[in-house]
Design a protein around this nucleic acid. Structure first.
Length: 570
RNA sequence: CGGGGCGUGGCGCAGGUUGGUAGCGCGCCUGCUUUGGGAGCAGGAGGUCGCCGGUUCAAAUCCGGCCGCCCCGACCA
């Protein structure tokens, strides 16, 4: 590509509202331009990078035996009602109406659609297993887009779905996708951490997320500093402490705590630390009330609670329900003296506590000196709290959990039969019986990967693209475009490198050398060839690798070969 | 949705408290010079100061409302 004929507008300064490196550098380098919050245009350079990442994903999907399809972005409401997700999917899909006021959503994901598609033609167990995928724009009505390409309203995603006859089929497909993802990130030179995760709105099991560690990420993972345990903060587990042996305990006393509704207010008023408090959080299922107890300085994890509690539709009790059930305003609930029909579930840590503080189930009062088995009974202990930085690891002897920020780049789930049952993806098995296909789903944030790569690979001067996703393999900087001799050398090199199969940006513009150098560094071509003074004086071409600054000055005739070898290390 | 910040040529910003000709740097156009790390000189183009309303002889500036953008939080493949 001749730079003089290309469209790659760069900026000397990034817009002030771009804060993280990937956002700033992709704007400055002329890869993307904003349209609106969470919406970006892809300029030619950005489109090239995106296409490269897509192609890597495509190749690895195909290698893993998946087949590419393309489904509509626009999906009818009726389809989503069949799975029940029209109302429940979070974040709420973007919804639109056509001229006859029929509702559609802009697909945030395609489980319903793919299941319906496969169900149309699925007859025999002989049709299975199969894995289909697509690469396409997805839409999420995010509460708040942020970080440039990190979280957008519209983004490019690769979503794959596997259908199997048996659990083993799903396991195989899952393993194949998992391995494909490892290859994808290896090719992109991205060191990802695979972590345990929650299922969110998709539903399923064996969820793993592929995380790129980055201070500018918006997820948190806990990684053990000793073993290989790693988990998303939303489901990380710390080691369960040994229950404390029965010991002497104090007497329960009622104390006045006027208007002290929060842990902070209570601790301040009573002069004790939050680790001496027990928080009582009231929930309901369809059948019963649930009182969940965690230490005052801990955060309850609702996913964990929902798993530990029998019954459906766990939700936080409303203020009115709390008031009616406990007889006190919100903020004074406690486990002592609750009605019998409540399930009292406590985090394991509660079993290590003595003489703690709880709400008294009456306005403006708390108990001190409260003890399990003495003042109330716990129906069940479970891991309910969120893990914290420095917690003991549950999976090894003396490891500690370390909190790290990260960017989620991909996920894999086993879905089971949630969608195949709802949509009716059934087949006739060998014994003549009708069976429901078992599914898995596997997503890659393609556009987010672009941001991730830049977060991982940049310096003060600009982006340092790994070769596999660089917009061009190399750049030729012709510093003196008016010099016929030099121009001939550069033209020739351009031809030869192109001939050798490289994608080359040939900067033969009539601009100053400084501009060419600065833009080349900013845009981040893996290898840069300079044709200028050294070429004129010594008949040589300077080659420089962006990633490590490695430089070689070679005879004109050796430039192609050297460029190719330098690219190997890029 | 709560908290905070911002909105003035394409980008970065000043001006605003004290109302009175809209400014600077970069970029852009023309010409000449220049050509190894975002060149120099000269000339030039480009702005309903986010929008609507109010106060005033007069509003970028003061007041009210709205919109947009960014950050933090809540939430979240």
């Amino acid at each position: 590509m001749r730079a003089s004929q290309y469209w790659f507008p760069t900026l000397r300064e990034a817009p002030s509202d771009a804060e993280i490196p990937s956002h700033r550098l992709l704007l400055r380098g002329g890869f993307i331009r904003p349209l609106s919050a969470g919406l970006f245009n892809w300029l030619p350079l950005g489109q090239r990078v995106l296409a490269k990442v897509e192609q890597i994903v495509r190749e690895e999907m195909n290698r893993a035996g998946a087949h590419e399809v393309l489904m509509p972005i626009l999906q009818p409401k009726e389809l989503w009602e069949r799975s029940g997700r029209w109302e429940t999917f979070k974040p709420t899909p973007l919804r639109v109406q056509d001229r006859s006021e029929r509702w559609f959503c802009l697909g945030p994901t395609h489980e319903e659609n793919i299941t319906d598609l496969v169900a149309m033609d699925l007859g025999s167990y002989r049709d299975l297993p199969v894995t289909l995928y697509q690469i396409q724009a997805k839409f999420r009505d995010e509460l708040r887009p942020r970080g440039g390409l990190i979280r957008c309203k519209e983004f490019i995603m690769k979503d794959a779905y596997s259908f199997g006859r048996t659990r083993e089929d799903v396991d195989d497909a899952y393993e194949a996708m998992y391995a494909a993802y490892e290859r994808i990130f290896e090719r992109l030179n991205l060191p990802v951490v695979v972590v345990e995760a929650e299922e969110g709105s998709i539903g399923g099991s064996d969820t793993r997320e592929f995380m790129l560690l980055s201070e500018n990420g918006e997820d948190t993972v806990y990684m053990c500093d000793s073993c290989d345990y790693a988990s998303n903060a939303e489901c990380a587990t710390a080691r369960i402490p040994e229950p404390m042996a029965p010991v002497e305990h104090g007497e329960r006393r009622l104390v006045d705590t006027p208007n002290a509704k929060t842990v902070e207010q209570v601790t301040r008023m009573l002069g004790v630390g939050p680790e001496k408090l027990v928080k009582t959080l009231l929930f309901r299922t369809d059948d019963q009330f649930v009182a969940a107890l965690v230490r005052g300085d801990r955060t309850l994890n609702e996913f964990k609670l929902a798993r530990a509690v029998p019954g459906d539709n766990l939700r936080m009790a409303s203020d009115a329900e709390v008031q009616e059930f406990t007889g006190a305003r919100v903020g004074f609930a406690g486990p002592v003296g609750l009605p019998d029909d409540v399930m009292v579930i406590a985090d394991h840590e509660i079993a290590t506590m003595r003489d703690f503080v709880t709400g008294a189930n009456r306005d403006d009062a708390h108990f001190t000196g409260v003890n399990v088995s003495v003042d109330f009974e716990v129906d069940e202990y479970a891991d309910l709290r969120e893990a914290c930085h420095g917690d003991a690891c549950a999976h090894c002897e003396d490891g500690k959990l370390q909190a790290r920020r990260c960017i989620e780049l991909a996920h894999v789930f086993k879905l089971g039969t949630k969608y195949s049952e709802a949509i009716g993806a059934t087949f006739q098995d060998a014994d003549g019986s009708e069976q429901v296909a078992i599914m898995g789903c596997y997503g890659v944030g393609v556009s987010r990967i672009v941001a991730g790569v830049v977060e991982r690979y940049h310096d003060d001067d600009g982006i340092i693209w790994p070769r596999e996703c660089a917009p061009f393999d190399a750049a030729i900087l012709l510093l003196s475009p008016d010099d016929e001799e030099l121009r001939a050398v550069a033209d020739n090199l351009y031809g030869e490198l192109s001939e050798a199969g490289l994608e080359v940006l040939y900067d033969e513009r009539d601009t100053s050398p400084g501009v060419k150098f600065a833009e080349a560094d900013l845009i981040g071509y893996p290898v840069r060839a300079v044709i200028g003074r050294v070429t004129r004086n010594e008949g040589k071409i300077e080659l420089r690798r962006r990633s490590d600054g490695h430089e070689e000055v070679v005879e004109i005739g050796a430039a192609v070969e050297t460029t190719l070898s330098m690219l190997e290390g890029a």
